[in-house]
């Protein structure tokens, strides 16, 4: 290597090192993509929907007039709104309760060593990485009124009588249960991965010390693992709540809000009103009802997570 080349390499390395050590320059540089992403794909549409919700804009108009809170009054006056709000809360709370239970069980099982662990992890992650539309179409067939796999299996195993044929997506309670099951199936992998990361971060020494002191499985789980996992569990639940509260895909693909609005959630109703019905302003007003609820939930959960941190 000639001296000139060596100097050039050193200069290049020096430039990198200087950048890596310059915190004033580095943090904005590293944060810039995330901020840009949030501003363009979250901030701008959010401001746009705020703007739309106080206007009379439709899908077919470019001009709009300010109408104040009229769209919100109209939304609140509709009984579909209250049904959708109730359904959204049931859909979110019930599904996240089960997500929490299943994700804890799975994370604990996957933190143990056994043969084929990588395969089990892959299978558990699949519902999260596969496109939801594909998964939901699979579920559509599982729940199909004519070809339901569940009913067929139930009859083959004589759990269901020859004339029993539950209509999973056509009876209000069954339809709600069906969409909740799909949402659990969809969110459990993410929660499992988050909790698994939390579990692996707990030092083994603590478990060993507790074992030496005579603590059994349940005491170790309830008095060591769960308290140490609490901050990250709250983050997993927060993600689950936000994803479920704002999700319309499962409901749209499986029931489209039916039977007679009994599975209608705010996100699907906003879509039907704003895009299908052409009332963009009304749709924006419906979707904005989600925002204060989610902000409140996020603040509460993040505060709880901070308080429960073990330092």
């Amino acid at each position: 290597m000639t001296t000139a080349t060596a100097n050039a390499v050193t200069a290049k390395a020096g430039w990198r090192t200087r950048l890596a050590d310059n915190e004033r320059l580095l943090w904005p540089l590293m944060l810039a993509p995330a901020i840009l992403y949030i501003v363009l794909l979250v901030g701008f549409p959010f401001l746009l929907s705020l703007f739309y919700s106080v206007s009379d804009v439709t899908v077919g108009s470019r001009s709009m007039n300010f109408v104040g809170l009229e769209n919100f009054h109209r939304v609140v006056a509709s009984n579909t709104f209250w049904i959708a709000l109730k359904n959204t809360l049931i859909f979110t709370i019930v599904s996240q309760f089960f997500v929490l239970v299943f994700a804890n069980i799975l994370a604990m099982a996957l933190s143990a060593d056994f043969r084929g662990k990588w395969l089990v992890r892959l299978l558990i992650l699949l519902p999260w990485v596969a496109p939801i539309s594909l998964g939901a179409i699979g579920w559509l067939w599982i729940y199909d009124s004519i070809y339901s796999v569940i009913n067929w299996t139930g009859q083959a195993l004589r759990i269901l009588g020859p004339n029993d044929w539950p209509i999973w997506l056509g009876q209000p309670n069954l339809a709600m249960a069906s969409i909740i099951v799909v949402q659990i199936w969809r969110i459990v992998p993410l929660a499992t991965v988050i909790l698994l990361a939390g579990l692996t971060s707990i030092p083994q020494d603590i478990h060993d010390a507790a074992a030496v002191d005579g603590a059994g499985f349940w005491r170790r789980t309830l008095q060591i693992t769960f308290p140490l996992l609490l901050p990250i569990t709250l983050v997993a639940v927060l993600f689950g709540i936000v994803f479920t509260f704002t999700d319309m895909i499962v409901v749209f693909l499986l029931t489209r809000g039916g039977p007679y609005d009994q599975t209608q959630v705010l996100a699907t109703w906003a879509f039907f009103t704003g895009i299908q019905g052409g009332d963009l302003a009304g749709g924006a007003a419906v979707s904005l009802f989600l925002f204060p609820v989610l902000v409140a939930v996020a603040i509460v959960f993040l505060l709880l997570a901070r308080r429960s941190e073990v330092t």
């Binding site: 729940y143 209509i167 999973w168 056509g170 009876q171 339809a175 029931t255 489209r256």
Partner: peptide, 10 residues
């Protein structure tokens, strides 16, 4: 009740 769950091709 199956008609309550139908899509356009059911």
């Amino acid at each position: 009740p199956e008609v309550l769950a139908w899509d356009a091709s059911s």
